[in-house]
Amino acid sequence: MSGRDNSVRVLSTLALKGAIARLAGAYQAASGVAIDADFAPTLALLERLRGGEVADLVILTREGLDEMTGEGRVAPDSAIDLARSYVGVAVQAGAMHPDIATEAALRSALLGARAVAYSRLGASGILFARLIEQLRIAAEINARAVIIPVGFTAEKLISGEADLAIQQISELKQIDGIEVVGPLPLELQTPAVFSAGRMVASQRAAAADHLLRYLSSADIAPVLRETGLEP
Rank of each mutant, 00 (worst) to 15 (best):
A143Q: 13
R107T: 15
K156H: 11
E103S: 14
G151H: 01
S159P: 01
S119C: 10
I175R: 05
E140I: 00
L164D: 10
E171F: 06
R120D: 10
I169M: 10
A138L: 01
A123S: 14
A165V: 07
A115S: 15
A139W: 00
N142F: 12
M96D: 15
Q174I: 13
E161G: 09
I166W: 08
D99L: 10
I141S: 06
I158A: 12
L131H: 09
N142A: 11
Y118M: 11
G177M: 07
M96C: 01
G112C: 01
R120C: 00
M96G: 13
A123M: 07
V150F: 05
F152S: 10
L121R: 11
A138D: 15
S159I: 06
H97L: 09
R107N: 13
E155L: 15
V116P: 01
E171K: 06
L111W: 00
P149L: 02
A117G: 12
I132H: 02
V150L: 11
G160E: 04
G151W: 02
V150Y: 08
D176L: 03
L172K: 03
S124V: 02
I100E: 09
A95R: 12
Q167K: 01
I166M: 08
I100W: 06
L172T: 04
D176F: 00
L110I: 10
I141Y: 07
G94N: 07
T102H: 07
Y118F: 15
G112F: 05
L110C: 11
E133V: 01
A101F: 01
G122A: 14
A115D: 05
D99C: 11
R136M: 01
Q167R: 02
A129G: 09
A143P: 12
G122M: 04
L172R: 09
I148N: 06
R136S: 12
P149K: 02
G122V: 11
T153S: 15
R130Q: 14
V146D: 06
L127M: 13
G122K: 05
E140L: 06
L157S: 09
E155G: 04
L131K: 02
L110F: 09
D176H: 10
G94L: 08
L164S: 06
L135E: 04
E171H: 04
P149E: 10
A143T: 08
G125W: 05
G122W: 02
D176P: 12
K156F: 00
I100L: 08
P149T: 04
H97W: 12
I137L: 00
Q168D: 14
L127T: 07
E161Y: 00
L110W: 10
E171I: 07
A104E: 15
I141C: 07
D163L: 02
N142R: 13
G160T: 03
I100H: 06
S124R: 03
A154V: 03
A138R: 14
A162P: 03
A123H: 10
P149W: 00
L111M: 08
A139C: 00
N142H: 13
V146H: 14
I158K: 13
L172W: 03
R107L: 09
T153C: 14
Q134M: 04
L172Q: 07
S170L: 05
K156T: 02
G151S: 03
D99G: 09
G122S: 15
Q174G: 10
R144H: 13
A115H: 03
A154S: 13
A154D: 02
R144N: 07
L127H: 08
L127S: 01
E161P: 04
R120F: 11
